[in-house]
Design a protein around this nucleic acid. Sequence first.
DNA 1: CATGAATGAGTCTTCATTCAT
DNA 2: CATGAATGAAGACTCATTCAT
Lengths: 199, 199, 199, 199
Amino acid sequence: MTADRPAEAPRSRKPRVDAARNQEAIVEAAARVLAEQGAAVDVREIARLSGVGMGTLYRHFPTKEDLVRTILRREFLTWAASAREAAERAEDPWAALADFFRQALSGYARHRAISECFALAWAEPDVEGLGELRAVIGGLTARAHEAGSLRPDASADDLLLLLVSLGHAARLTGDSDPEQVERLLRVSLDGLRPGHAER
Amino acid sequence: MTADRPAEAPRSRKPRVDAARNQEAIVEAAARVLAEQGAAVDVREIARLSGVGMGTLYRHFPTKEDLVRTILRREFLTWAASAREAAERAEDPWAALADFFRQALSGYARHRAISECFALAWAEPDVEGLGELRAVIGGLTARAHEAGSLRPDASADDLLLLLVSLGHAARLTGDSDPEQVERLLRVSLDGLRPGHAER
Amino acid sequence: MTADRPAEAPRSRKPRVDAARNQEAIVEAAARVLAEQGAAVDVREIARLSGVGMGTLYRHFPTKEDLVRTILRREFLTWAASAREAAERAEDPWAALADFFRQALSGYARHRAISECFALAWAEPDVEGLGELRAVIGGLTARAHEAGSLRPDASADDLLLLLVSLGHAARLTGDSDPEQVERLLRVSLDGLRPGHAER
Amino acid sequence: MTADRPAEAPRSRKPRVDAARNQEAIVEAAARVLAEQGAAVDVREIARLSGVGMGTLYRHFPTKEDLVRTILRREFLTWAASAREAAERAEDPWAALADFFRQALSGYARHRAISECFALAWAEPDVEGLGELRAVIGGLTARAHEAGSLRPDASADDLLLLLVSLGHAARLTGDSDPEQVERLLRVSLDGLRPGHAER
DNA sequence: CATGAATGAGTCTTCATTCAT
DNA sequence: CATGAATGAAGACTCATTCAT
């Protein structure tokens, strides 16, 4: 239908090895669409953008929900991993925390889906992937507490909620004013330092 | 909004009253439903709860979107007003700001619709009602800046975004842990104090 | 869409009183279609034949299954009633039984749906309507046994199964050879007389 | 199920054997599935149970209908043959007829497909296989008539219809009450004896 | 002017059949 | 010649909006 015979390398068309390629195309398209439009999109739109028929889509993901969950998990994991890596590059516990937030928020801004994922995750906290994020934040929090650079009354769960909270702001503002979210983050980070009245 | 037949004699008064009663019923029901279920509700549900027929509902609001916008605006205004009043009860500029946030967040938690309203409002900043909130926050910010109790690099827009941000957290956690949002708010407020590195 | 302004009498168009008319139209159309094509028909077909939109159909019957069950029950009851009446017109117990069968079979022939109904009913014996039929057959059987005109080893359940059995034949042959089913019925009725070896 | 590469020489024999093996597997699986679930099954199910791919299945049977018809014919023939054999074991014409029925019904009960086959066959009487059954029944009927053990007004076609009729009952009751169908059969056989009023 | 039944395009999902490897 | 992934036309059901009474 769109030719592209096995010429150079990647783009051939349908079968066998390319089932994988199709799946990837679906995932890619779905990720993009979900990021932009949220989970309410028409499945057809995803099929169209993937360049596959409905049947193919449903072969790979037996349900719209399956598709959405898969994408969300993937996006979530990628995002969480990149934030974790940012944290790992820093020596100082406090810098690690800050870099983690900065990286996470920059990813958050681009994903309507991640946001929705959290909205679900909060109601249903066993969503895959959330666990790891918690672990990462838990580690960062513990290190920062040990180093005395984080106010004692701030728990890992608080930081997770703060992340979601600022993430929402990041997504709302989008690319219009990246500085603004950065300012908000600085305020929060300053507020997380020890030495404030702890009531 | 519709008729307005202030004529001389026969059928002028009662219809008006009835129409007003109906409109009120619709608005009330819609507000409740939108708060609980968001803008995705079936219009029928609103009609049912209002006790009016679809036709009546559509006479008052020619479109679902009209209805939703109207409700959101109303809810928004009520909410903003209550936050403003909370602010006005305080003498101290900083206390006014804190009370404003506290009140606003407590309202936010209960309104799925307000959240969605902001999501729209951000893309389309001329939504009625947002202006007044901006004015209130602007006033609070100015006073606090004058009093020297707010860090100089925090603008009114920043505080608005912070509000939305924390509001999201408030709605996510719902009634499950009110303390957590309060902690987050304290962190932010501490971070908003002057004396932090301002880069 | 099909005109027919409120001229002579019945056919007006949609609302209020005519909700009933629509429901009737749906039921009528569905009965016809189910009789001819069985429960596998496209709902759209029924809507089309009824002259109503999908929404109307689904307003009256929230599910295809609801529609089918309703029709089946209605058809079943009508059919069973006409058979019962046929039985009641006869004085002699045996003649009553025979007339009952004759009438029932003639109805059976025209209803693919009744057949499917029985197929379901056998798996799920609490289907509404079956009960009454059982009662009728039970009564006929008892009277015939008392009168000594029915072989003692034939139970009411046996007669019910025989009815379904011959009914299937009646439907298969359709209008092509009504005599053949009549012959089969005579054979069975003869076989039901007392005086055969009862093992 | 695949492999089986017994020879050395060219590649002429093996493909044939493989193809035959595949066809057999398909037929076997299809027969089982059709018996259990009727003709509404998903073709994939059959392919899966056969252990062959869709392509292979469609190579052997270019259409689902082809497959179904083939299976039905095969099942039909097997079933008819076993009934015929049962008939042949009996000396007495009447006993032959009775045994034929008994055997046929026991097979019928297990085959949802046979029933559907008859439903088709009746509309389209040239279905292959039906002919032979007719012949068998014709023979049995003729012998029984000659022996004077069958009522004169019962034709071979009548017995065929009776068979289908009781078969339906047999399938409906399934294994739940084998005695009931046996009672029904006895009634019919008694009714088929000569000496009843023949109108 | 209120009512709520009617409309029908749009949504998710299935399945017989084809076709690239 | 086998494989099983791809296709896409239906099918059941929903819901914002209109309209006859």
